[in-house]
């Protein structure tokens, strides 16, 4: 079972649930940025929910299927076309051998997931099939796709069938204005009180540089740090600290100007003060933000973050039950 890449799209990669357990040695999580939609795509085609899929950012690929296949497209609004004829998103669809699958523009959202029954068959590296582009390993030869690549897929599972549909109420919401819940810390105290308040008041716009490594935001008022003599080992800018580990989801603001949220391909440490961390339940929302979408940061405490995590888990359970 094979798929030929005719046009690669902007940045199409193989991703799965991620590479957990190596962040301490500088190897990030990687994996699908929107884990919810990734799982939905797999469940639709009857795969294990952690099977490897194609993640498409902002612009879809054009693919030729060399064998009959069952596929599903979830996440952003990116309508598939089978030999030029529009097909459904959020539904398992049958693709005939020889068919060319292309995609309409990404009308809403930023990341689409294409699951193929049987999963994308690439070697497992450190427990995951996910691509880590900066490290040039994992996924398909450690990189995004190029024209002419041929991908192998595994044998389709017994439960694969066309027609299984994602109920509308269980699709990933794709708003152009998003609230992101943030727990302040570890260096929140380095901001002046007035500046910290402004960070949560302002509306921030996704910058065109935003990618799997970090999501950069602009158009809020610059942040002000409390004056201090920089400690030995820290850079001279007030946004610098002595190097520390960066949590996934942490927010750094180089020069106090543009906040960057570290996402699944981020470096694991460095010398910028982290003023807070986006709660894990909201990381999928970031994945679906196109450049120029807007975010507001909402300050929450640990209890709220844990309740949101439980809610997300419950929603995943609903998804599993609906697509069983």
């Amino acid at each position: 079972m094979a798929i030929e890449v005719i046009k690669p799209g902007l940045a199409t990669t193989v991703q799965d649930a991620g590479r957990v357990g190596y962040y301490n040695v500088g190897i990030p999580l990687s994996g699908a940025l929107d884990q919810y939609s990734f799982r939905a795509a797999n469940l639709l085609v009857g795969n294990d929910e952690n099977a490897a899929v194609l993640e498409c950012s902002l612009l879809g690929p054009e693919l030729r299927f060399l064998d009959d296949a069952i596929i599903a497209v979830t996440g952003s609004t990116m309508t598939p076309k089978l030999d030029g004829t529009l097909a459904a998103t959020g539904e398992a669809i049958a693709v005939r051998a020889g068919a060319v699958v292309s995609f309409d523009f990404m009308r809403a959202g930023a990341r689409a997931y294409i699951a193929v029954a049987g999963g994308i068959d690439v070697p497992v590296v450190l427990g995951s099939r996910s691509t880590y582009g900066l490290g040039a390993f994992g996924g398909f030869l450690g990189r995004k796709f190029a024209a002419g690549d041929v991908l192998k897929t595994g044998p389709a599972p017994a439960g694969a069938r066309a027609g299984r549909r994602l109920p509308a109420e269980l699709a990933m919401p794709l708003p152009k204005e998003v609230e992101l819940r943030v727990m302040p810390g570890l260096y929140y105290h380095r901001l002046t009180e007035a500046s910290a308040a402004r960070f949560f008041e302002d509306t921030w716009t996704v910058a065109p540089e935003a990618d799997r490594i970090g999501y950069r935001y602009r158009n809020g008022r610059p942040l002000e740090f409390c004056p201090r003599q920089q400690p030995f080992g820290a850079g001279s800018d007030p946004s610098n600290i002595v190097d520390a580990g960066y949590p996934y989801g942490s927010i750094q603001v180089p020069g106090g100007v543009e906040p960057i949220i570290l996402h699944r391909d981020a470096v694991s440490g460095g010398g910028y003060a982290m003023i807070g961390t986006v709660i894990s339940a909201d990381m999928d929302r970031i994945a679906q933000m196109q450049p120029n979408y807007k975010a507001r940061f909402v300050k929450v405490d640990l209890d709220t973050a844990l309740a949101a995590r439980a809610d997300r888990q419950q929603r995943l359970d609903q998804l599993r039950a609906a697509l069983r």
Binding site: L58, A110, P208, P291
Partner: peptide, 9 residues
């Protein structure tokens, strides 16, 4: 002529 992807033109 429509823009295929988001960003800066």
């Amino acid at each position: 002529i429509q823009c295929p992807l988001p960003g800066t033109f």
